[in-house]
Each structure stands twice: as C-alpha cells, then as structure tokens.
Amino acid sequence: MKKPNTFIVVAAVAAAVIAATWLLLAAPGYTGNEINMTRGVTSQSTINYSLHMTVLWICIVIGIIVFSAMFVSIVLHRKSRGYNPAQFTHSTKAEIIWTVIPVLILVVMAVPATRALVNMEVAPETEMTVKITGFQWRWKYEYVEDGISFISSLDPESNAARRLASGTPPEEVDNYLLEVDKPLVLPANTKIKFLITADDVIHSWWVPALGWKRDAVPGYINEAWTEIMEPGIYRGQCAELCGRDHGFMPIVLHVLPRAEYDAWVLEQQNPESVSRLAASPARPSATAYENE
C-alpha cells in the first residue's frame, strides 16, 4: 500500500518535470514553434525581454521551492505511512519571515521594472513622426514631416483564403494573415515618434519586435517612440478587440537602411522618379508602392 503510492507520486513528479523541460527546451527545436517572447530589435524590446526572463526565473525558483515542500510533504506525511499528525497551529516568526522575504524580492524586481518603464515612457528627442490611425479594419499611416500617407490593409491573398470554407489551406499562403498590401516603411537607427489614434473604435497597434503595444483610442492621441536597430521585415497585429475583423488587420514594417529609406521617401513624393530608384535590390517589393 505504502510503496506503490510513493512510487506513483515520484513517477508523476518525474514525468511532469521531464514533460515541462521538453516543452521548454526541446519543443521549439523540433516544431519550429517559438515559445518565448521575442528579443526584438529595439532597446525597449531587449530590456523587456531581459526583464521578462528575470521575473520568469524568479517565479520558477519560487514555484520550485513551494512545490518541492508540498511534494515532500505529500510523499512523507501521509496516513498510509502511519505518520502521526503534528498539532502546531501557528508561528508568528514564520509569518513575519514569509511576509518580509517576498517584500524584499518584490523590491528587487521593482528596481529594474521602474527603470524599464521610465525608459519606455520618457521619449527622447525624435527625428521623425508617424501618425497611426486605426480603422475597422485597417491602419492609416501618415508621415508627418514628409507628407506621405496611405492605408494598409490585409493582403488580398490572405483575405481570400481566410473566408469561411474558402478552399485555400492557410499553409499555401505566404505569411497567412500577417501580410499587408502596403507595409509601413521606416528607417533603421532613427528615433521615431508615433502618434496613435483611432477613428471608430479602440484598436491597439502592436509589433512584438518593437517591444510594446499602444492602444489607439478615438478622441485620444497616444504617443510612443522607437529606434529600430536592424533593417528587416517585422510583423504584428491589432491587439484590442475591434469588431468582426479584429483578427484580420495585420501590421507589417519594412525597415530600411537610412539611405534606402530616404530614396523611398523621394520616390513617394515624386512617383515619376520610380524607374531610377527601382533598381535597388534591398528594397522589398518596390512595385507595391507605385500606385501611391
């Protein structure tokens, strides 16, 4: 009676630990599924990633300590082992200890958390401004200084495939639901200010690689800033429920090196000069902007 019980508990705990380890460490390798927060490409996302990992590890250690005590107790202090119950009922000393220690841990967490928030919220001098307006169900981008503006909606291919019983398997669509007709083009290594608002209902503008999301609220203009360190293509989605097609208003950033970005701006302002600039190979799908 007593041996099988202990064996079952130990086996269950071992199985749980192995399963958890596999899921945490091995699963992404096998399946290609990302399971953790992205490190991203901005100072904010990097800080958030490391803060997330710090707090996660603190939580894991607390969890291991608490659950170990419980499982040791479950294995040892059972009636089937003939264990007689102790009758202690309270200890002021213990209560003080497990009040004070968590407070100290919280203080340790609060210091970097405060620093990260200050860095996030207090914008530096920015070099350019993009106004973002959320609509049901697309985004409008306005380059305030350069006078460029356009609307960005779900890519037609995804839009056809996502219909109920469309007959097109999502796997056959490139970047299913995460592609737009006109991406937001931004320069790398430039401090950019975003002014975020909405025209109808509340939306939320989120590109995980930037490290934050910000709600687009009608009647409000929210501010956020970024400085993207690496050129590339970054994808995100609306994060606040905004009605029927909330799941179908993605965000795509094409981040270009500064010189190419400047060329792109010129091209947008003088569409005739397209042919001269279209040769640039690093620029993603230049044709997408021609009908601007």
Partner: peptide, 18 residues
C-alpha cells in the same frame, strides 16, 4: 503568498489522505 505558505504548512507534518 502568505496564504499559499500557510496551506503548505498545514499539510506539513500532517497525516494526509487523498
């Protein structure tokens, strides 16, 4: 946390059945 620690302490050195 105080609550969780107290539950674990209640189990500790008890005579448990499941």
């Amino acid at each position: 946390g105080v609550k969780v620690f107290n539950w674990v302490s209640t189990m500790w050195k008890g005579s448990m059945t499941f």
